[in-house]
Design a protein around this nucleic acid. Structure first.
Lengths: 339, 339
DNA sequence: CAATGGTGCTCAATCGATGAAGCAAGAATT
DNA sequence: AATTCTTGCTTCATCGATTGAGCACCATTG
């Protein structure tokens, strides 16, 4: 290795000196456009070899400072505590790298202030593009970015001023509700309205899912019980509290439930076990989101799995094409039952 | 907002011009050491106000290029598909931000080549420090980084040339095995050896866990069945294949299992359901790692939850103190049973 | 033999922020 | 009144990579 390794990093100037040439030539060779700059193959090879030997690493800060595009792409994501966001991030990184982009991901814990702070930090790092995933306030993120001339794409939750890629929440919820209603009827022999629990009443996805939930009831000839629509937030303890309160005021608990995310399901399941309310007859469940262990919990659970690969293909399709129109791409989720 | 927003970003030179002062003064004011540089409070206020109005954002690439430390901290992580790594990343980001560091996280999918590529990319971005989490080849990452004068800390899996923070794998495995053995004896009235499945035979954690597994057997007066130690890899399908092959050659299947990670458990559970081998009598299970839904799967599962907050406190303790000695900090995991 | 063209490089400005060194003007000291 | 100190700035080199402009040299061409 290089003897001065611990003190200073090798730069193109060091390599130029060693090769007896100019920094300009070194730069051209190492960033690949030496043909355009008419550097001889012989010199190119010499420099490449030297760079290797010296363990040269490009200083991206210097490179980005000079270039017009940074080739850094940012993503903000609410949480890492479920498979859905986990696979979004994993796919995002893979697809970004495939395109020679450097991905930066930040978890903002569903906190609007953190979202803005994270976006600001990304802008400081000169990102070319920000993907706002499940953002609480996608439009404010968008405003911040567009003021800096940086494009935004919304994922999972739509915004009103940037292109968005989301699941077909209505369609998924409609089908999921249908199935749970059918399971209830099969199991209990009667038509009863379901409980809807989890999510924020103000977010687009939850509203659309509630709409699908309602329409499925209507189509099945069942009246929705408005006291059973609990958009209490996503967090497990919020869902659990909502269940506790429901049990206190309701004389009869619902036979089936539509649970809006695995993370809310965590709270609901916890309540079911602790409260003992469903000790004799398990409720029929539907969960909007997928988790392998939930699938193993029993055959009384239906799940909707959002189509992450297709969603991210759509996102990078928009990035690659440079489109900025306000389209909302809806990706059909996969409704599956794992017995 | 700024009218030239779409074309060019505001720089300190723009602000200097607007304020009728020098870029140097603007820089001093905005990076907070204007007192040291003897800028008047009046001018400081004026510049701060202007920066706000113009939506100024620091260009980090330029700033980092000039500074000696970048205040960027990198982490490589194998996967985002389980709670353990998910919470590691979430905590890491939070603690980094608390210290004014900018976290960059990259998922390397347990691929040694990707690990090195990711480390190289991070070095290009001038990271001050790299945390190698669950790295397949932590020492090569370490070599790369140290050649660039960047410190490394190993997390989850230890390396031989940098400080490491890991779980007490031996202790956790010992206790977990004890419990599963006890459950087996209680349930079946006889002492039988357990199955060990999942993980890599070559990785430190797996070896330590196998050691705990063996010692617990010995202490209970049970001989380990060597044919039942299946370190087949972590991936669900690898665990599932290992089970299939075991079932083909074994006449009698084990009463209890030590499953090395939730991700392997996914494969094992899948096999159990598909094969029908345990249809009449559920096996007693122990899982090294925690997942809320696994906890709900039944009372026949014991889990070890690695203490992520303590582990990351230890990591940042090392970072803050600047220690570089080759200590391996072992954090006791939490052995819990959720019924 | 002069003009033209191509090849293979080097020079120097530039990106935006930082901070050591220095300078001018007023205040305090002798 | 002359000196020193303090305050409040400005100037300028610098970090490392990129790239337009340009220069020297050799090979063709008319």
């Amino acid at each position: 290795m290089n003897r001065t390794s611990q003190t200073k990093r090798t730069t193109i100037y060091d390599l130029a000196e060693l090769a007896g040439t100019s920094a300009s030539a070194v730069s051209a060779v190492l960033n690949g456009n030496w043909k355009k700059r008419r550097i001889s193959a012989k010199l190119a090879e010499k420099i490449t070899k030297l760079a290797e030997e010296q363990g040269y690493a490009l200083n991206m800060q210097a490179s980005v400072l000079r270039r017009d595009r940074s080739r850094i792409i940012g993503m903000i994501v609410p949480k890492y505590d479920n498979r859905y966001f986990g696979s979004i991030v994993e796919q995002f990184e893979a697809l970004a790298r495939e395109r020679g982009l450097f991905p930066i991901v930040t978890c903002t814990r569903r906190d609007p202030a953190l979202e803005l702070e994270a976006a600001r930090a990304m802008l400081s790092y000169q990102v070319d593009c920000v993907i706002a995933t499940g953002a609480t306030d996608p439009d404010r993120v968008m405003d911040l970015c567009s003021a800096a001339g940086v494009r935004t794409i919304n994922l999972d939750l739509p915004g009103s001023r940037a292109p968005s890629v989301i699941s077909d929440n209505y369609g998924g919820a409609l089908e999921l509700t249908r199935r749970v209603l059918a399971n209830c009827e099969k199991e209990y022999g009667e038509k009863t309205p379901l409980l809807f629990v989890g999510g924020r009443g103000s977010d687009h996805n939850t509203m659309e899912r509630v709409r699908g939930f309602r329409d499925a009831h209507t189509q099945a000839g069942i009246a929705v019980d408005e006291a059973l629509v609990l958009t209490c937030g996503y967090a497990p303890d919020k869902a659990e509290n909502a269940m506790t309160q429901l049990a206190e005021r309701a004389t009869d608990l619902p036979r089936g439930m539509f649970v809006n995310s695995t993370i809310s399901l965590e709270g609901v399941m916890h309540w079911i076990r602790r409260s003992g309310h469903y000790a004799d007859r398990v409720p029929q469940l539907g969960c909007f989101d997928w988790d392998p262990f939930v699938a193993m919990l029993g055959d009384h659970i239906e799940m909707v799995r959002q189509d992450v690969p297709k969603m991210l293909d759509a996102v990078f399709g928009i990035i690659d094409s440079g489109a900025t129109d306000l389209t909302v791409v809806q990706i059909p989720p996969i409704v599956e039952k794992i017995g």
